[in-house]
């Protein structure tokens, strides 16, 4: 009998693989295919953004709407919000009046329900649900850094095979454990991408170029959880990412990357500003490290268990299922 807790394994049985690592690689590919949007979902999302964008331009002829975040880089999980930003040539749209006038304009046009205007935050936003598609949308105002980051990430994705798959697995892992929300000290999407990108860039096997990353996703996922769960020197090491590569640097070389309250913190140097730490909001790094270590232990134990089992006992089993809990709608 097949377990529907792990829907991505239905009709994708790899229990006859000789190497456990190859089984895990194939299962990662199945999971990524399972959560990737269908052509129909992509069409609906694009049409929805198109409608909002036309409304913004109608209200403010000098303004335009851009998507950024996971939607702009094709790294989103099913049901995630779309992040947009309104930028204008006057640069004057980030004030209370503008936030409220866009909110009521969208409501009048029946493009927004469940509207929330968060005007007092460090980054003021409007949150709403587009009624036809039921997609959740966040709109921020007059910022370009998200759009710049999306450009860098798209470059990494084309140059780094395997990056997309590993990022989606880690995002799903963190989201199931509620460790993906920056407001509660979790890891944001951009930080996750930087961690995975630096891991792939600095892995001995990619440095020596004797493996294809997409054929080794299983072992690489375990290496990744082992690095950030057991070995990485969070007290002393900062990660630096550039549009064309990644490196480490000792934190003592740049005091801006040190957390004034604790030495145990994640530091990722912003490619656009060497004195900015992208992950300074992720104060819950202790639980994140523990969760990664737990994932590594679960995966290795599962590999030992399945390696010792007979082929008959392996049928319909999942390696990833212990680690990745998918609680979304059936797809």
């Amino acid at each position: 009998t097949l377990n529907t807790d792990y829907p991505w394994i239905l009709n994708h049985d790899h229990s006859k693989q000789r190497e456990i690592a190859d089984w895990l690689t194939l299962e990662i590919k199945d999971f990524v295919a399972y959560i990737s949007p269908s052509q129909e979902e992509i069409t609906v999302r694009n049409a929805t953004i198109g409608k909002i964008r036309r409304a913004v331009k109608e209200l403010w002829p000098d303004a335009d709407l851009h998507v950024f975040g996971s939607f702009a880089t094709d790294l989103y999980l099913p049901g995630s919000d779309i992040d947009c930003v309104v930028n204008s040539s006057a640069g004057d749209k980030e004030n209370r009046n503008c936030l409220y006038s866009l909110a009521s304009f969208l409501k009048r046009r029946k493009l927004a329900t469940q509207v929330e205007v968060i005007a007092k935050a460090r980054v003021p936003i409007i949150k709403f649900v587009e009624p036809e598609s039921q997609i959740h949308i966040d709109v921020s105002f007059e910022r370009t850094n998200g759009v710049e980051a999306a450009k860098i990430i798209r470059g990494w994705l084309t140059q780094t095979p395997g990056l997309r798959e590993l990022v989606l697995i880690v995002k799903q892992f963190l989201s199931a454990r509620r460790l993906n929300n920056v407001h509660t000290g979790g890891l944001g999407g951009f930080s996750v991408i930087c961690l995975v990108y630096a891991f792939l860039e600095l892995h001995p096997r990619t440095l020596s170029a004797d493996i294809s990353t997409t054929e080794n996703l299983g072992i690489l996922l375990m290496d990744l959880f082992e690095l950030y769960g057991k070995n990485f020197g969070y007290d002393h090491v900062a990660i630096a990412v550039q549009s064309d590569g990644a490196s480490y640097l000792p934190k003592q070389k740049n005091s801006n990357l040190q957390n004034p309250r604790t030495s145990f913190s994640l530091a990722i140097q912003d490619p656009g500003d060497a004195n900015n730490n992208i992950s300074r909001g992720s104060f819950n790094i202790r639980d994140i490290k523990k969760a990664f270590a737990g994932a590594f232990d679960l995966l290795t134990n599962r590999c030992f268990e399945l390696d010792a089992a007979t082929f008959k006992d392996r049928v319909g089993k999942s390696i990833l299922g212990n680690v990745i809990k998918y609680r979304g709608k059936e797809r």
């Binding site: 860039e201 600095l202 020596s208 170029a209 020197g233 090491v237 900062a238 490196s247 480490y248 640097l249």
Partner: peptide, 17 residues
């Protein structure tokens, strides 16, 4: 295979090259 990118060896423990 390509050549080893030896200039990109970094230490996860101390951050040095």
């Amino acid at each position: 295979r390509r050549a080893l990118a030896i200039h990109k060896i970094y230490c996860y423990n101390c951050g040095e090259k």
